[in-house]
Simulated assay, not measured.
Amino acid sequence: MRRAGLVVAAALQATAGSVRAGVTTADLDAVAAEVIRTSGATPSFLDYHGFPAVTCISVNSEIVHGIPGPRVLAEGDSVSIDCGAIVDGWHGDSAVTVQVGNGSEQARELSEATRLAMWHGIAAARLGGTVGDVSAAVEGFVRSWPTPYGIVREYTGHGIGSAMHQPPDVPNLGRAGKGPKIVPGLALAIEPMLTVGDPANSVLDDDWTVVTDDGSLACHWEHTMTVTEGGIWVLTSPDGGEAMLAELGAPFGSLAD
């Protein structure tokens, strides 16, 4: 899974680095596809329940599951890129949100709040703890942010391993101490989805793209992680999450530990 996670990290880095005005979302999908192909991995998303692309690319009021296509990005757009890869039957799954150009202050703040909520959720995981600890940490961080944001309930993080989606679900709202136990070998994809406005949402006629009902800006960040005896290991982060975990006072533990 670490090998798959590093492929995903490389694909996201290359794709995010290609975001600019005038590029289509299909162009971005092709960048991720090429990184995955040359790494000897297989895309997780392509043909998953009929999904037609390697990445999900969601723009502005699109929360998740946007289908790459002819849409041309414009200055100021907020772009979520979600990517998964398989190596030897094991999955990695991660997402980032970036701005076209500088973006708006509102979009940058929303993205930073979403990113940090994800990391606070990751840092709350521990062996013997529960999935609810992660959920409560995500929600608690968002509720403490100076700007009030909507938290999407209908779509959650998930277990991941030999399949992209496995039990348990990892909601972005919850109570500490509740839910399944975190045990050795459990890997989780933690992925908060926040909105500037009301988090109520609908699926478009393409049967995939999820959008805010009020048209407000949305954001999505995601990492795949696990907990070893030594501490937390973020499988889709190039450094394993070591730097951010240190900043948050959480233990880092790769297999080397």
Rank of each mutant, 00 (worst) to 15 (best):
Arg2Asp: 06
Arg2Met: 09
Ala4Gly: 08
Val8His: 02
Ala10Phe: 05
Leu12Arg: 03
Leu12Gln: 03
Gln13Asp: 10
Gln13Phe: 06
Ala14Tyr: 04
Ala16Gln: 02
Val23Thr: 11
Thr24Cys: 13
Ala33Gln: 12
Glu34Tyr: 02
Glu34Met: 04
Ile36His: 01
Gly40Lys: 07
Thr42Ile: 10
Pro43Tyr: 07
Phe51Gly: 00
Phe51Val: 01
Thr55Asp: 02
Cys56Phe: 08
Ser58Leu: 03
Val59Lys: 02
Ser61Lys: 08
Glu62Asn: 05
Glu62Cys: 03
Glu62Val: 05
Glu62Asp: 07
Gly66Ser: 07
Pro68Cys: 09
Val72Lys: 11
Val72Ala: 10
Gly76Cys: 05
Ser80Ile: 04
Ile81Ala: 05
Cys83Glu: 03
Gly84Asp: 00
Gly84Phe: 01
Ile86Leu: 02
Asp88Met: 04
Asp88Arg: 13
Gly89Glu: 04
Asp93Pro: 00
Val96Met: 06
Gln99Pro: 08
Asn102Val: 12
Gly103Trp: 02
Ser104Thr: 15
Glu105Thr: 13
Glu105Tyr: 11
Leu110Lys: 01
Ala113Asp: 11
Arg115Leu: 13
Ala117Leu: 07
Met118His: 12
Ile122Lys: 08
Ile122Glu: 07
Ala125Ser: 06
Gly128Gln: 04
Gly128Tyr: 07
Gly129Thr: 02
Val131Pro: 00
Ser135Met: 05
Thr147Asp: 11
Val152Thr: 15
Val152Phe: 14
Gly161Lys: 13
Ser162Phe: 14
Asn172Thr: 09
Asn172His: 13
Gly177Trp: 09
Gly179Phe: 05
Ile182Arg: 04
Gly185Gln: 13
Ala189Tyr: 13
Leu194Glu: 11
Gly197Tyr: 12
Ala200Gly: 02
Ser202Met: 03
Ser202Trp: 04
Leu204Phe: 01
Leu204Ser: 04
Val210Pro: 03
Asp214Asn: 05
Gly215Phe: 07
Leu217Asn: 12
His220Gln: 12
Met225Tyr: 15
Thr226Glu: 15
Thr228Val: 05
Ile232Glu: 09
Val234Trp: 00
Gly240Lys: 00
Gly241His: 01
Glu242Trp: 02
Ser254Val: 07
Ala256Phe: 10
Ala256Thr: 03
